[in-house]
Amino acid sequence: MLSPHPLVLADFERILAKPAFEVVAKQIESTLPPDMRKVTIPRAQVFVVDAHAARQATGALITNILERYPTARLIVVADKHTDANSYSLLRLGVKGLLSYEEAREQLPRALPLVAGGGFWVPRSVLSSFVDSVLESRTRRIRTESVANLSRREHEVLESLLLNLANKEIASKLNIAERTVKFHVSNLLSKFGVRRRADLILLCFQSRGTPV
Rank of each mutant, 00 (worst) to 15 (best):
E144G: 03
R152A: 07
C203G: 14
L32M: 11
I62K: 00
F119P: 05
L188D: 01
N186I: 06
R123M: 12
I28L: 11
C203Q: 08
R123V: 13
L16A: 06
Q106Y: 10
T31P: 03
A54E: 14
F129R: 07
A72N: 14
P70Y: 04
L199V: 12
A51H: 00
L98M: 10
L89P: 00
I62L: 01
A84I: 05
A10W: 10
K26Y: 01
L160E: 05
S185N: 07
V77D: 13
V23I: 03
V48I: 07
G192F: 13
Q205I: 11
P42S: 08
F47W: 00
V49I: 09
T40Y: 13
D50S: 04
F182T: 02
G93D: 01
A78D: 02
R68W: 05
Q106C: 09
Q205Y: 10
R194E: 15
V23L: 06
L98W: 03
V121T: 06
G93K: 04
H52C: 04
R104P: 04
E102Y: 01
V46A: 00
F191E: 09
I141C: 15
V77R: 02
I28F: 00
A72F: 10
A51Y: 01
T40W: 09
L188T: 01
L134W: 12
R152T: 10
R68K: 07
F47E: 00
Q45A: 09
L89A: 01
E105F: 14
A165L: 06
G59K: 03
R139V: 15
M1W: 04
P112M: 03
T40C: 05
L149I: 05
D83M: 12
E13D: 13
T63S: 15
S136E: 15
L92A: 12
E105A: 08
A115S: 05
R123K: 13
R109A: 12
T58M: 03
R137E: 14
G96C: 08
R37E: 15
I15C: 14
E22C: 13
A10Y: 11
N64E: 12
R109V: 10
A57K: 14
V133W: 07
V130H: 13
E155P: 10
R151P: 12
V48T: 01
H52N: 02
A25W: 05
E101H: 09
Q205E: 12
S124Y: 11
P70D: 10
A57G: 04
S150F: 09
R139C: 11
L2E: 06
D83V: 02
A20T: 08
A17S: 14
G208C: 10
I175W: 00
P6G: 07
V146H: 11
A57H: 07
K167Q: 14
L188R: 03
I65H: 06
A103I: 07
N166V: 13
T31G: 05
V49K: 06
R207T: 01
N174T: 10
D198A: 10
F182E: 03
F47V: 02
A53R: 08
A57D: 13
P19H: 06
R68S: 08
V193I: 08
H154W: 13
D79S: 04
K190I: 05
V76G: 02
K18L: 11
V94I: 11
R43T: 11
A176M: 00
F119G: 00
